[in-house]
Design a protein around this nucleic acid. Structure first.
Length: 539
RNA sequence: GCGGGUGUAGCUUAGUGGUAAAGCAUCGGCUUCCCAAGCCGACGAUGUGGGUUCGAUUCCCAUCACCCGCUCCA
């Protein structure tokens, strides 16, 4: 499937528009149109209903170590700035970068090191990215080359002091960049903040600086105690949240795949440390199955366990659910959801302060140069007391974190089909249709009078109104019926009900199936029951 | 962020330094008893901002967006 066909269909039929299009658009932002909002809402509802409302806490589910509870939360997008310092996002997402005009490389400002050297009256700063221990070798080699000297002339170079960070250098015109041959190729350091910054309060000053959340998860952690104290849940249990997140992506690309404003569906599942491994396995498989059940059943979907070296410093296991999006090179997959075993990193960080691995490889509060915690925690006790076992502990966390927009996009890509159907003369004619799972389809059923006369519209309208009581239905009486079928196929409507001459005789109507084009007759007054049955049957 | 390419109606395309063309789609009417048919009519475009010019959609500059490659990717 060519991606531009889907993009074109999405725009033409009102699934997705570029944000602010009449002003020329805004890179990395997308709007959902009338049908897109229904589709995405169905995706989110399918998730919420299955994960939260429909969860049976009295039953031990297949693959689960025990029963468990599920509950929900909806927290703010802007939170206390300290949340992002303790979560690690502030340090990770906030850098100054310099670009090299010659080599086209980009460096973190604080990671470029170097040393001053003079020769023949010229003094330059030789930058390097070589590893500790190889810095001297690298800088000497490049300094010689720059001054057009031979190796035996090395002692004619006058080096000054020790290696220092580029942050200590003010005049970049004297800097030889790590991969450059000429001087002064680096741009001025530019602030590179992956989090959107904003200001709380009408007066904007740095003391009011805050961030739009880059993930919904932290809101769950900081409310852990509130949920525990207010809802009688007991470990093991999960807190689910659906909401917008924001990341200032460097290169938003590939339609909605990498957007700067996007929606997440996240669960933080809290369990006893001794059971966390099993729960991780359970959620990994459970979440994979969710996509399978909703129609991503082909080879384009896969579950991939991260290699050891891919894991975050705090994680003891992470798996991605990935989809081979058509815009990716053949053989490559894009992430739909990550299921991470996060241990007690998050709760402890919000208690004690931001954690980091110490020399012994254990998580400990990261200290600043002054010996105090680099980012102070809340100081609140977020441990859990199990009265049955008389045991107190900091729960471990399993985090299934899904992208609502990515899932929606994957469902669209997977559902796009072209085939040939016979036209009124029996000649094959190209048809485009979205083979969406009925549960996801924006419109569940369309109702047509075969022709706009002989009382058919009135009968069809009655059925339409009945259907509308139960689900999203669509009524159309204009033009040839084949065209009306085609239009519904293109937006993935699974069933069309048609009122014809026979309806006027015996009250029966036809139901047409989107995928097979098969038609059969049912009683008009049972249309709602029939369609409901069909929607349920395939769910 | 860098390099290359592309921007004409909702979509696909044509064309020109001097009134911007068509097909499809959409809307209205007629017709039509099952898969985009037919007839009549209607709506509708040079991404944005500058410059050159008597006149710019066309030439130049900038900008925005999209595509490809690189870079980045918690």
């Amino acid at each position: 499937m060519e991606m531009d066909k889907l993009v074109s269909l999405c725009k033409r039929r009102g699934f997705l528009f570029q944000s602010s299009e009449i002003y020329g658009g805004l890179n990395g932002f997308w709007d959902y149109g009338p049908l897109g909002v229904e589709l995405k809402r169905n995706v989110k509802d399918a998730w919420w209903n299955e994960m939260v409302r429909g969860h049976d806490e009295l039953l031990v589910h297949a693959g689960a170590p025990s029963t468990y509870e599920m509950t929900g939360l909806d927290c703010t997008i802007i939170m206390h700035p300290q949340v992002w310092k303790c979560s690690g996002h502030y340090d990770l997402f906030h850098d100054f970068m310099v670009d090299c005009r010659e080599s086209k490389k980009r460096y973190r400002h604080d990671q470029v090191r170097g040393r001053w050297v003079s020769y023949n009256g010229q003094r330059i700063f030789v930058g390097t990215q070589a590893e500790i221990g190889h810095e001297e070798e690298d800088t000497q080699h490049r300094a010689l080359k720059f001054f057009n000297l031979r190796a035996k002339d090395a002692e004619r170079l006058a080096w000054e002091g020790d290696f220092i960070s580029l942050t200590k250098v003010s005049n970049f015109a004297e800097v030889l960049a790590p991969d450059a041959k000429t001087l002064g190729t680096l741009t001025e350091p530019r602030e590179f903040n992956l989090m959107f910054k904003t200001y709380v309060g009408a007066l904007s000053g740095e003391e009011g600086a805050a961030f739009l959340r880059p993930e919904t998860a932290q809101g769950i952690f900081v409310n852990f105690k509130n949920v525990l104290d207010s809802s009688r849940v007991a470990i093991p249990f999960g807190i689910a949240q659906i909401g917008k997140s924001f990341r200032n992506e460097i290169t938003p690309r590939n339609f909605t795949f990498r957007s700067r404003e996007f929606e997440q569906m996240e669960i933080e599942f809290f369990c006893h440390p001794s059971q966390s491994r099993q729960w991780y396995q359970y959620w990994r498989d459970r979440r994979y199955k969710w996509y399978l059940d909703l129609g991503l059943a082909g080879e384009r979907l896969r579950l991939r366990d991260h290699d050891q070296d891919e894991l975050s410093h705090y994680s003891c296991g992470t798996a991605d659910i990935e989809y081979a999006f058509p815009f990716l090179p053949s053989g490559e997959f894009g992430e739909l959801e990550g299921i991470a075993h996060r241990g007690d990193f998050d709760l402890r960080s919000h208690m004690e302060g931001k954690l980091a691995k110490d020399a012994a490889g254990n998580l400990a509060v990261e200290l600043g140069e002054d010996g105090k915690p680099r980012h102070r925690g809340s100081g609140k006790d977020l441990s859990y007391f199990d009265d049955q076992a008389r045991e107190r502990y900091v729960p471990h966390v399993i985090e299934p974190s899904a992208g609502a927009d990515r899932a929606t996009l994957a469902f669209l890509c997977e559902s796009y089909h072209e085939d040939k159907v016979p036209d009124e003369n029996g000649n094959p004619r190209e048809r485009v249709f979205l083979k969406l799972h009925p549960r996801l389809a924006p419109i569940k059923a369309a109702v047509f009078p075969l022709v706009k006369k002989d009382g058919m519209p009135e009968v069809a309208q009655k059925i339409y109104r009945d259907l509308k009581q139960h689900f999203n239905a669509f009524y159309d009486e204009k033009g040839a019926v084949g065209r009306r079928y085609a239009r519904q196929d293109e937006v993935g409507t699974p069933y069309c009900i048609t009122v014809d001459g026979e309806t006027m005789q015996n009250g029966s109507v036809t139901i047409r199936d989107r995928d097979s084009l098969k038609q059969w007759r049912v009683r008009g007054d049972e249309a709602v029951t029939e369609i409901s049955k069909l929607l349920r049957g395939t769910t």
